[in-house]
């Protein structure tokens, strides 16, 4: 409702407030698959704190999450599960594809992996690396926040 009515000053401020609220308390869903999951956990740990962005609560249930960080390689067997978890997330939702394997299949260009998780779910941010260090992941997350704040991503 707040995003579609044009020209009304009060609606625009509400829209901005909504976007601010969404970025400042984005809850990630636990979708750590492989090595990138360890770096994701390290990002949530004390040294590269995710809690300063309001994101340290990794919700186990997708129904309570906004952000799905696909951390790791997605195999053929896992792809339907990935899609199901994504479908269970309520709008607005965003997807960060973390790592080379999630973005493009990485170094494993073979029968077993889905070559890029964007074949299965729509992705907003790709974070390259094998695995991307916590700084890269944080850069990706903050970029997502900026894009939402500026209205570029309209979910």
């Amino acid at each position: 409702m707040a995003t579609t009515a044009p020209g009304n000053l009060m609606m625009t401020t509400v829209d901005k407030a909504a976007r601010w609220a969404r970025t400042r308390s984005m809850f990630p869903a636990t979708f750590g698959l492989a090595c990138c999951a360890i770096e994701m956990m390290a990002t949530g740990a004390a040294h590269y704190d995710l809690a300063r962005f309001g994101m340290e609560v990794f919700r186990a249930s997708p129904r309570q999450a906004d952000l799905m960080i696909v951390a790791g390689r997605v195999s053929q067997k896992m792809a339907p599960v990935l899609r199901q978890v994504f479908d269970q997330m309520p709008d607005p939702k965003w997807v960060i594809s973390m790592g080379a394997c999630a973005s493009t299949g990485g170094m494993f260009n073979n029968y077993a992996l889905v070559q890029g998780v964007d074949q299965v779910v729509p992705v907003d941010i790709y974070v390259p690396g094998c695995p991307p260090g916590p700084q890269s992941l944080l850069h990706g997350i903050l970029t997502l926040h900026d894009k939402i704040m500026s209205g570029e991503i309209n979910n």
């Binding site: 053929q76 067997k77 493009t104 299949g105 260009n109 073979n110 029968y111 077993a112 070559q115 890029g116 964007d118 790709y126």
Partner: peptide
């Protein structure tokens, strides 16, 4: 492999299954 997979992947006559690299427009 998934239960309905056909073929036995590590046999030498089963190809690697690589796909040509796709450049995404992101």
């Amino acid at each position: 492999m998934p239960d309905d997979w056909e073929g036995h992947p590590l046999r030498k006559d089963f190809g690697v299954g690589s796909v040509p690299v796709q450049f995404k427009e992101s």
